[in-house]
């Protein structure tokens, strides 16, 4: 199953990058979403995969039984998801504002101040 996850991470990453390399600003933002997923999957897989044993201590226990999912990567991913959501929300609005100002959704037209 690591192989499956590794491939998913790779596909998400590739699709995201491909989208970002397009000239449409909308695709740029969509690409960001996909590579974000890819990063989360990567952490999730690298932390070790465990099927269906969530990291919640049972009512009759005081510790997490061995073989439960590693809670730390989950916490990290949760933080990362939320942060990337914040960034994404900002990016979406930024892109739409830029589109309004420049009047074009082609990033090649965003080069005026750069030469």
């Amino acid at each position: 199953m690591e192989l499956l996850f590794a491939i998913i991470a790779g596909v998400l990453f590739a699709a995201g990058l491909y989208l970002m390399l397009r000239r449409s600003i909308l695709k740029l933002v969509m690409g960001l979403v996909l590579i974000g997923h890819s990063a989360n999957i990567t952490i999730f897989t690298a932390g070790g995969l465990t099927r269906a044993r969530s990291a919640i201590i049972a009512p009759d226990a005081t510790t997490l039984p061995a073989g439960s999912a590693d809670p730390l990567p989950q916490a990290l991913i949760l933080t990362a998801i939320v942060i990337s959501f914040g960034v994404l929300a900002f990016a979406i609005v930024l892109v739409s504002r830029a589109w309004q100002e420049v009047g074009n959704d082609d990033t090649d037209q965003f080069a005026e101040t750069d030469r």
Binding site: R51, A52, S54, S68, A69, Q74, I81
Partner: peptide, 8 residues
């Protein structure tokens, strides 16, 4: 969900 991360 499948891999034990309901919060996620």
């Amino acid at each position: 969900v499948v891999f034990g991360a309901p919060d996620l």
